[in-house]
Design a binder for these strands. Structure first.
Lengths: 224, 224
DNA sequence: GTTGGCTTGTGAATCGTTTCACAAGCGCCA
DNA sequence: TGGCGCTTGTGAAACGATTCACAAGCCAAC
C-alpha cells in the first residue's frame, strides 16, 4: 500500500476536508458531494475528487460521499485513529502555550514529556507535564515511546535538539525555531515560522504599495 | 513595477535567503555565490538565481552577489525596510506568547494594539501593550494606522474578527485559528495551524508504518 | 424497466514551477 | 592584451499539480 508520492499540499487539504466533515456531521448531514465540500474548503470539486482518488474511491456516483464513512476513511489515512506521543523541547513562551493547548490532546497528540535546560524550570510542572533536563531526553523519549518531537527552543539550540531527537528514535519533528534544520532522511520535518509568515504578508503589503504608487489605484493584491 | 505574479513559495525562499545573508554578513562574508546560498538554504543554485531574477539582476558574473547589497535588496523587496504596525486579537495562550516574542519587533513588526473580550483581561497590560475591548477595534486600528492583524482567538470568533479587521482597513491577516476564513480580495491572509501540521506529520508516520507492515523493512518516508 | 438528473472517478489538457544547460560577462594573471 | 576559470541570467525542457471534460454509474420517479 505504498502510495507513490502524496504532495504536502494534498495532505493539507485532506486535513481541511476532515474538519469540514466533522462540522457537517455535527450539523446532521449524512451525504456530501465533492462540489459542496469544495465550496467549503475553497477548492474545486475536481480537486476534491482527485485528492480522494489518490487513496481509493469512497463515493457513490449520483449521490456523493457518506459524511461518516469519509471522515473515518480520512482519519485512517491521516493516522488519526490512534494516539501519538509527543515530546516538547523548550518550555519558553511558545512551548508553554503549546502545553496548554488542549486542542492537541483532543486531536490525539499527547505531550508525554517536556524538556528544558533552565534550572529554574526543570523539575517543575506545566499543565500536568513534568519538565525534565535535556540530558535525559534520549532515555525518556525511548522509555515513553515518543513518536513526535516539537522543538520550541531558541534557534541556536534547535539543530542540536533535532539531532538528539532523531538519535532517540523520533521520526517526526515540528520545529518552531526560525532556522533550517538538517535531519536524517527518515525523519519528517515541518517548520512553523511566525516571522517568515509575517514577512510574506509584508511582501504583499509592500507590493500593493508599489502598485499604488505606479498605477494610482488603491486595489491591493489579494492572497486570500 | 507590478510583478506578474510571485509565488508564495518563492517569497518564502527570499525570506530564507535573507536570513542566510544576515548570518553570512555576521561571519564577515562579502561575496556569496548562488551555489553557496543554495547549499545553505537547501535549494539548487538555479532556483536561487531564478528567484532573484524575478526582481532584477543583482549579481556579478564570475563573482557572485555582494552579501550586503543583496541583503538590502531583499529587505526592500520584502518590505522590511520599514516598520509595520500590528494588532493582536485574542490574548490567550498563543496571543500572550506572541506578545512576548521580541523577535517580532526586532524584525520590524510592532504590536501597537491588543484586543480581547474577557473582562478580566481588558484594561490590563501584557508586555507593555494595553488590552482593549473588541468593540474598540475599528477605532483603535484606524487611529493607530494598523496594517497587519493577527487573529489568535477561538475558532468560533475568528471569522467575525477577520471581517472587523478588514472593515477597519487592515489588508494583511495572520490567522492562528484552525478555520478557513473568508476575507475580501484585497486582504492577504496566511493561516498557521499547529494541529494541521501535526496531522501532516501523523500522515507521514502512518504511511511509514503501513510501509513497514507490507514490506517488512524499517525505513520510514522522509520529508525532511 | 426505462428515463432523467446528478455525481463520481479519471484520462487528457493545461498551467505553473523547477531544473537544465549554455551564452554572456567578470576579474585575475601572465 | 589575451586567455582562463568561474558565475550569472535566462530560454528551453522536464516535471508536477490543477483543471477540464466525459463515460460510467447511481437513484428516484413514473
Amino acid at each position: 500500500m505504498t502510495h507513490t508520492k502524496i504532495s504536502d499540499s494534498a495532505v493539507r487539504r485532506l486535513s481541511i476536508y476532515l474538519r469540514l466533515l466533522h462540522d457537517l456531521s455535527d450539523q446532521g448531514a449524512v451525504l456530501v458531494s465533492s462540489r459542496e465540500l469544495a465550496e467549503r474548503a475553497g477548492a474545486t470539486s475536481a480537486q476534491v475528487r482527485k485528492d480522494l482518488s489518490l487513496f481509493g474511491s469512497f463515493g457513490k456516483r449520483g449521490r456523493g460521499y457518506s459524511v461518516a464513512e469519509l471522515a473515518a476513511t480520512l482519519e485512517e489515512i491521516l493516522g488519526l485513529r490512534r494516539h501519538w506521543r509527543v515530546a516538547l523541547v523548550g518550555v519558553g513562551k511558545i512551548g508553554t502555550a503549546l502545553l496548554g493547548y488542549q486542542d492537541l490532546s483532543r486531536r490525539g497528540f499527547e505531550v508525554v514529556a517536556a524538556f528544558d535546560t533552565a534550572t529554574g524550570k526543570v523539575g517543575g510542572r506545566q499543565f500536568g507535564v513534568r519538565i525534565s533536563p535535556l540530558a535525559e531526553l534520549k532515555t525518556i523519549v525511548r522509555e515513553r515511546g515518543v513518536e513526535i518531537g516539537i522543538i520550541a527552543t531558541p534557534p541556536e539550540a534547535a539543530q542540536n535538539v533535532a539531532q538528539r531527537l532523531a538519535e532517540a528514535g523520533v521520526t517526526a519533528i515540528l520545529n518552531f525555531a526560525p532556522v533550517k534544520l538538517d535531519v536524517p532522511e527518515e525523519v519528517s520535518l515541518k517548520t512553523m515560522d511566525v516571522a517568515m509568515e509575517l514577512e510574506g504578508l509584508s511582501f504583499q503589503l509592500a507590493a500593493g504599495q508599489r502598485d499604488e504608487q505606479t498605477t494610482g489605484n488603491g486595489t491591493g493584491s489579494g492572497a486570500g
